[in-house]
């Protein structure tokens, strides 16, 4: 009788060795990624200092604010009494487009140089444009280089600056290139 009992015990211990194969299970995992749309800035209008006059004896300047408005200093005055040739005075404006809600950084130079063409032809001495300032619509009222795209994925940037006009500057048409760069932050 005892021998029979031992035989049963040996069979019971051996059972797990046959238990494993073929069992299979699946887990429904996933992979996630956020591919962000590119951010771009498109020029809406130029930084325009309008038409102005310069003094033969006194240097001057015109400052266009990043949010608009112009002030004259020293020997520089507007070439008109309002309207006409002066109506074009405006800060540069850029439309920034990208992924809604994302913050971004704008980089802009602090100074650039305008090259001129004399009214009678030929090159005029270059003029310095400095004190370039940036205004982000998403940060109205504060000076910052970090903006945030709205729920449409847009923001607007204004850039103003100061055109310095030395005494005796001849009549000429001036142009400069203003490049800004926007990157996600």
């Amino acid at each position: 009788m005892k021998r029979g009992g031992l035989a049963f015990a040996a069979m019971a211990i051996a059972t797990p060795a046959f238990a494993a194969s073929g069992q299979s299970a699946t887990a429904a995992g996933q992979a996630q990624a956020v591919i962000v749309a590119p951010i771009i800035a498109v020029s809406l209008n130029d930084l325009d200092f309008g038409s102005l006059t310069s003094s033969r004896t006194a240097s001057g300047s015109i400052t266009v604010g990043a949010e608009g408005g112009a002030t004259y200093a020293g020997g520089t005055t507007a070439a008109c009494a309002g309207g006409g040739a002066c109506s074009g005075i405006a800060p540069a404006r850029f439309l920034v487009s990208g992924e809604a809600g994302r913050s971004y950084t704008v980089s802009a130079p602090t100074a650039i140089t305008a090259t001129g063409t004399l009214a009678g032809g030929g090159s005029a001495p270059p003029l310095a444009i400095d004190a370039l300032s940036v205004h982000l619509e998403s940060h109205a009222g504060s000076v910052t280089s970090i903006g945030q795209l709205d729920n449409k994925g847009e923001d607007r940037i204004g850039v103003g600056g100061r055109l310095n006009v030395p005494a005796g500057t001849a009549a000429a048409h001036y142009r400069a290139t203003l490049t800004i760069m926007v990157t996600y932050s």
Binding site: G22, S24, T26, A27, A31, Q32
Partner: peptide, 16 residues
């Protein structure tokens, strides 16, 4: 741009 959610099933089988 896009938010990607890619199914990633894993099947584990006990062979022995």
């Amino acid at each position: 741009g896009a938010d990607l959610t890619i199914p990633l099933p894993i099947v584990v089988t006990v062979l022995a």
